[in-house]
Design a protein around this nucleic acid. Structure first.
Length: 287
DNA sequence: CTTTCTGTTAGAAA
DNA sequence: ATTTCTAACAGAAA
């Protein structure tokens, strides 16, 4: 579910709420989602303190104060990380952050309790997501296995151009390959192709220099716009406060099949299947 | 009721 | 070696 803009929105929320919090307890209701032996997972986290929340692509890295370890979290399709304060009444009698739903719910598979009695819930309907405590070396290896993050410092036109050389696969397949570009998923791959006016089916190494420059700019622009809107919620996505994202309103092609194109007002958005994923495009605007 | 689809990706198959 | 398909899971929609 969450792609770069959604994970970045969650990262910012967590940065606000959990930095400096000391973990009093971790309750693992679904051991399958933890990629460490459970005793080890508990030992590294219990009593530890979160001192930073970083992101690369769709992965979150929570830096811990002791033991020289990081907690890696991947939300996959339906993962959520929702923070709930200690529910102390503040002036006016309401609670903050404003979580609409009562937590934990049946999808709350891992629950962090902090020393001040606030909580962080890892909810995941489909149970594809995972948490893993890693050493500095493992963290570095994980970072190295990911491609360029479009909002990161290494994103520049030269490097972007070089990743298209000798790639004999469809543009969209390349955009979704996290070892090449880290962060785009199915929604934004479609949106970015539309913004650049390029058919997602085009072979990567057949794109012109002009195509690549357009694509390069479109990716960065759309990532910025989507983060600004708090990400896209079309089903399960929630931010760290349990709220939906607003970028759905700005989607140009994703989930708009059979509707008239917002740019040319003429083409009808087509939905096809490409590398096993639902793919949306305007047959007039995208060549 | 059955089938298909869904924001991901590791690992298998081609 | 590279690219594509499938399984992991649960639920909504057709």
């Amino acid at each position: 579910m969450p792609e770069l803009p959604e994970v970045e929105t969650i990262r910012r929320g967590l940065q606000r709420w959990v930095i400096g919090k000391k973990i009093a307890k971790v309750e693992v209701r679904q051991p399958k989602l933890v990629r460490n032996p459970l005793p080890e997972f508990n030992r590294y986290l219990t009593g530890n303190e979160i001192i930073a929340v970083d992101r690369k692509g769709k992965l979150l890295f929570l830096e811990l104060k002791n033991h020289n370890v990081w907690l890696i979290i991947h939300l996959k399709m339906t993962g959520q990380l929702v923070f709930v304060s200690a529910r102390e009444k503040i002036a006016g009698g309401h609670e903050f952050p404003p979580t609409s739903e009562q937590l934990p719910n049946k999808y709350s598979h891992i629950i962090f309790t902090f020393q001040d009695n606030s909580h962080l819930f890892f909810n995941d309907l489909r149970r594809f997501g995972y948490l893993k405590v890693v050493s500095r070396d493992e963290k570095e290896a994980t970072l190295a296995s990911l491609g360029i993050d479009p909002l990161g410092p290494e994103y520049n036109l030269d490097k972007f151009r070089s990743i298209f050389k000798n790639k004999k696969k469809a543009l969209k397949a390349l955009l979704l390959d996290q070892t090449i570009l880290a962060g785009l998923g199915n929604i934004y791959a479609d949106e970015v192709c539309f913004a650049a006016g390029i058919h997602p089916d085009r072979l990567a190494d057949k794109l012109t220099s002009q195509d690549l420059e357009k694509l390069y700019r479109s990716i960065r622009a759309i990532m910025h716009q989507a983060v600004k809107a708090g990400g896209t919620t079309f089903r399960n996505y929630r931010n760290a406060e349990g709220q939906k994202g607003n970028f759905v309103k700005q989607l140009a092609v994703y989930q708009r099949s059979k509707l008239v194109c917002r740019r040319c007002q003429k083409g009808i958005i087509v939905k096809t299947r490409l590398i096993g994923r639902g793919t949306h495009f305007c047959p007039i605007c995208q060549k």
